[in-house]
Design a binder for these strands. Structure first.
Lengths: 210, 210
DNA sequence: TGTACATCAGTGAACGCGCGTTCACTGATGTAC
DNA sequence: TGTACATCAGTGAACGCGCGTTCACTGATGTAC
């Protein structure tokens, strides 16, 4: 990945991708710190160390950048989940399973703020809503089988369609992250997730393992 | 309330309050439709039918307006809850109680979008976070006793501090509203809330009622 | 491996507009008699 | 109840800046021989 052969039209591509990446990184910073309302093309470029011309050579508009940022971050999250769950979810009881799920889903203030704004946009703009829904679905598709397997190992199975189960968990987790980041005390923390998980799964009598 | 006597310094006050109210209403519309990033002092004034001078006669800055908007909307929500819960929560089982709670908490796309943006701000700005936390606490304080009473009536009581119980419920509800407004299918809807409520409460053997 | 050449990516200056902010002014609103 | 007066709220014009957007140009990057 690092020293891959240039490829046919890598001439153009390479530098471009680097600038795009730098612009996206800068955008994440600026958006995370200032919010969309205070983020100008100018401020992103300054942060990235480019002139505005470079921006317009890569993106059509600020909205374009934001969409690209969301896509890239969403993909990164899915990758992260995929990677970390490669070995499956360990744990011998519900709480442990929940604990491991929580470790995989990061709690990042900056990104959460950006995501909240993106959600707000999705509530207004069907296009943004579709993008968001797609990402969420992909994330669930990634989590579902691993979660089901982990549950199976501790003698439980979903009491509703697996995708619904994951959806409920993610929903609860989302609210939880917000609550945590706002500093509403440690409170009921993971217990909400454990309880949710318990409510939407059921024990089953296992066939005798060989 | 409609034809109250003017009062000592109502001269000034009356017109002012009306303009303030109109500006706030316009701001809710504009913010809800366009988002903070696209909402200018200009656009709010235009919507409200005022010139910009009127704005600056009432607010120092856009942030000021937004803060006032949040405060006023939050207060309105608390009022609504207070009013509707005056008679207590009816219901003979958990699902019914949940159903009534859901009726009290409105699902308003526009306001939810504004709230999401406000949450994002709170994740960055301690001042905004404090305001948000205060409102949330007030809302919980309003809900808690009524909920506990309703639970008592069906033979249940919180298994955790009442405020925690409400917090978990509100958290779950928040995620649920988002999910619903994004159109993620009816799915597990209220069942998440019922399950949550069930998990964080316990039956108790009632003293024989006189 | 070196050199001439073509193309592409980012530069930086320039333009202009939207809009935040100010302020002298006017009309509205209430008070006093 | 009517009239003169004081004050306050909103008007609208003016100023200027930040920044979005464009574009001719230059230096970087790769290709061909």
């Amino acid at each position: 990945m690092t020293t891959a052969p240039p490829g046919p039209d890598a001439r153009t591509t390479r530098r471009r991708e680097q600038t795009r990446a730098r612009l996206l990184a800068a955008a994440l910073d600026v958006l995370g710190e200032q919010g969309l309302a205070r983020s100008s093309v100018e401020s992103v470029c300054e942060r990235a160390g480019f002139t505005r011309g470079a921006f317009y050579s890569n993106f059509a508009t600020m909205d374009d950048l934001v969409a690209a940022l969301y896509t890239s971050q969403a993909a990164a999250l899915v990758d992260r989940v995929t990677e970390r769950l490669g070995a499956g979810l360990p744990g011998t009881d519900l709480d442990q399973v929940v604990g491991h799920v929580l470790e995989v889903l990061p709690v990042d203030r900056q990104w959460h703020a950006v995501r909240a704004e993106f959600t707000a946009q999705a509530l207004r703009n069907p296009g943004a809503a579709a993008a968001l829904a797609e990402h969420r679905a992909r994330l669930r598709a990634e989590l579902a089988p691993v979660l089901v397997a982990a549950l199976h190992r501790i003698g439980r199975r979903p009491a509703v369609p697996a995708d619904d189960l994951v959806r409920v968990l993610v929903t609860a987790h989302e609210g939880l992250v917000t609550s945590t980041l706002l500093g509403e005390g440690p409170g009921v923390g993971t217990r909400l997730l454990s309880a949710t998980l318990a409510s939407f799964t059921e024990e089953f009598t296992e066939e005798v393992p060989s």
